[in-house]
Design a protein around this nucleic acid. Sequence first.
DNA 1: ACCTGAACACCGTTCAAGT
DNA 2: ACCTGAACACCGTTCAAGT
Lengths: 220, 220
Amino acid sequence: MAARRRPRTGGLSTQRIVRAAIEVLDERGFEALTVRAVADRLDTSSGALYQHIASRDELIVLIADHYLGQARLQAGSGMDWRTGVEELMREMRRVLLEAPLPPSASTDRAIWGPGTLRIVDAALGLFLAAGLTNDQAGFATAAIIDFVFGAVAIQRGSGGRGPHGAGDADDISAFLNTLPPDQYLALRTAGPAFLAASAESVFTQGMALVLDGVTSRFFD
Amino acid sequence: MAARRRPRTGGLSTQRIVRAAIEVLDERGFEALTVRAVADRLDTSSGALYQHIASRDELIVLIADHYLGQARLQAGSGMDWRTGVEELMREMRRVLLEAPLPPSASTDRAIWGPGTLRIVDAALGLFLAAGLTNDQAGFATAAIIDFVFGAVAIQRGSGGRGPHGAGDADDISAFLNTLPPDQYLALRTAGPAFLAASAESVFTQGMALVLDGVTSRFFD
DNA sequence: ACCTGAACACCGTTCAAGT
DNA sequence: ACCTGAACACCGTTCAAGT
């Protein structure tokens, strides 16, 4: 007797589909994340998934929100706003860098699931608790989110070279030497510093700039 | 007699391929930008393009660099650094928003073509001229680039709703009312302000924060 | 050296037909 | 109501064969 082909109990659901998709992603990476691969893992046909998801794109949004939901937020533990916001920004960055998704998955489409809203709420809460107005808290929150997403996207995009990629010194001078000698004068001067900085230090310094801006604009 | 099928003179080249791809993109949008569509426009076969480009991805990087190269930079015209940097940031944003590419095209892969380097060089030049050290200029440049890319990506991704999308007031309160009433307290408070702000004002305010940060950290 | 034409190995999505 | 199985209408990329 052949084994039963459909051992799983219960029917499909959006949640089961998202979970299966995340398993595929974690094990085999983004390029293997096809509708057929998710269906295979659930022992069903690819067409069946469309009763629960509208499209592959919608599935990716749900997955991105799942990863954002992994951020560890310690709400209202009595620290000053800047410490809290720094931790929040580092957590956003961590989950985005750890998610095996291209940056576009988190930006090409709007994500308004619970994982994302939790982070937005936490950021607004920290700024409001520090005494900012609703408008100020909104602008500050948007600014830190924009910065973190941009930093992550550019770091992931530049695989090993460039301002957030930290190639080694030889790579960098080799690259600078390919430039026409009468152009890019500032890049020749500051380029080694710009290109050699680690993604970590670029993020830390950029975050300090943004938060200094919040301080000087909204608290001084 | 049938018309000649191949009226164009000369052979293929990377440059002709990029130009044809941009025409396809401008006329028919990103989803119509297939290797076959570019080949058709050049009256050749899709396979032939691979003698001049390594992959569709490489082609997209070349296209993204082209659009970045459209930024209007008025180098060294004697204005103060902050005015110059603001104009540079607005130009980066403008060309990225006008390019009919998804944000991922500018971030999923590193772009180190002339269009991009010109912008990096201009930013470094403005900061160096203002008296920053190489390291400071590098960090400030990375920070403004991260911020602009993030702001553009999130604005483009959120098509009409969300912090950079500016849905109307009814949409926003309808959305907030779908949230569970015991959660997202800060979002309920500051949400209307956060969600209703126009992408323009969010960008302007965020830019002011970042540049205030540069001032207070590197100039005070 | 460069290009053609066809094939390879896939995709996301739809939909009649079944249960 | 939900799922199967097959098809539709494509993809990016490769490569023998031609010139």
